[in-house]
Computed example of a mutant assay.
Amino acid sequence: MARTPDTPAVARRREREKRTVSQMVAIHCAGHHQKEARTEKSYAGEALCPACKELDDYCVLHTERCRSMARKTSCEACGNHCYAPAQQARIREVMRYAGPRMMLHHPVAAVRHLMGK
């Protein structure tokens, strides 16, 4: 079943969500993995290790495919959890670490993310 085309507002929200989660993955990667291991680029353009790049790609793909973007407030409040359990656990770990640090690294994105909830 094909997704209906996004309105301009939903397209902006989808793009912002992909960029925000990518920035959070990059913060987590920088805090947990050696600089030499970060050879890949995130969706947001930041350095990632291959394992974090895999998670970043997964999150971006699932955000792109989300059919509930127009009506949901956040993924945790969504009735349809599209992440596999292993990826859910990984992204929770990333958000738990990166969330408090977002204000230092990406303050505008952090405030927008919090206001969106």
Rank of each mutant, 00 (worst) to 15 (best):
C75V: 07
H81F: 09
R12Q: 11
Y83H: 06
G116D: 15
T63Q: 07
A26R: 13
V10H: 02
A98Y: 08
A47V: 10
I27M: 11
P5W: 08
K41G: 05
A51E: 13
D56E: 06
K53M: 00
P107V: 05
E54V: 04
T20W: 13
R90M: 12
C59F: 06
L104H: 10
A77V: 01
I91D: 02
R12M: 06
E46D: 15
H32T: 15
R13I: 05
D56G: 01
K72L: 02
T20D: 02
Y97E: 10
M24R: 14
R19Q: 03
R65I: 04
V108A: 15
C52T: 04
A9R: 11
C52N: 08
H28F: 15
R12F: 12
A44D: 06
L55H: 02
A70F: 02
Q88V: 12
G79T: 04
G99Q: 06
T73V: 09
R96M: 07
C52E: 11
R19W: 05
E36V: 13
P5R: 13
A84H: 01
C66Q: 04
A26W: 15
A77N: 09
L55Y: 10
P50Y: 08
E17D: 12
R13G: 03
A86I: 10
D56M: 09
G116V: 01
Q87A: 14
A84M: 04
D6M: 07
C82P: 00
M103N: 00
E40Q: 15
M103G: 01
K72S: 03
A86S: 02
R12P: 00
C78E: 01
C66D: 10
R101N: 10
S42I: 13
R14Q: 08
Y83D: 11
C29I: 15
L55D: 03
K18L: 02
P107C: 04
Y43P: 00
R12I: 11
T4E: 09
A11I: 09
V21R: 15
L61I: 02
T7A: 06
A9G: 00
Y58G: 00
T20Y: 13
K41A: 05
S68H: 13
A44R: 11
E76Q: 14
H32P: 00
H105V: 15
Q88F: 09
E64C: 01
C82H: 01
E93M: 12
P85K: 00
C78T: 04
V21H: 12
R19A: 06
S42M: 08
R14I: 04
A89L: 11
V10T: 14
A86Q: 07
D56W: 09
V60E: 07
